[in-house]
């Protein structure tokens, strides 16, 4: 079995994986970081979004071996200790989450948007979220959260 090594949330990790192992499986099962979720099997829902080398990616659509050597950030690595990242804080402040299942992917995706656009319009946010499905919130408060989070980043 191939061995993969990468940096996840600032820590060097490595593990033996079957070649078919997806990055999300490596994160959840090998590393025990269960904040990254799997909500579909067609790369549509975005619950599994993490950052790979600073860009948001659906970790169900990458093999673990493709992330060999990469810098990966998951939802567990976003906060600064106990202090929430401004995007996390904005989701809390604006009731941008309900059941919490899509939330890690939403937040990671939103951070990537905000990294490239400090002041996204409502329309830009809604378009950006095309790859993230939420069944609870109707997106209203997610859009509000992302606007505030981006401004505070």
């Amino acid at each position: 079995m191939p061995t993969v090594s990468m940096t996840v949330n600032g820590k060097s990790v490595s593990g033996e994986v079957e070649a078919r192992t997806l990055l999300v499986q490596f994160i959840r099962e090998n590393l025990g970081l269960t904040g990254t979720h799997v909500g579909c099997d067609t790369s549509q829902c975005g619950a599994c979004v993490v950052h790979v080398d600073g860009k948001s990616m659906k970790s169900c659509s990458l093999l673990a071996v493709q992330a060999d050597g990469a810098e990966v950030t998951t939802i567990e690595g976003l906060a600064n200790g106990e202090e929430l990242h401004p995007m996390q804080e904005a989701f809390r402040n604006n009731h941008g989450l309900q059941c919490g299942f899509c939330t890690p992917g939403m937040v990671m995706s939103a951070v990537d948007l905000a990294n490239n656009n400090k002041n996204p319009s409502e329309e830009e946010i809604r378009e950006w979220l095309e790859g993230n499905i939420c069944r609870c919130t109707g997106y209203h408060n997610i859009v509000k959260s992302i606007k505030e989070g981006a401004a505070n980043m």
Partner: peptide
Amino acid sequence: VKRLEDYRFLTGRGTYTDD
């Protein structure tokens, strides 16, 4: 009131069955 449950969900510390 801001939701008391949000911290764990926002930091990836929720515990769903598959976790």
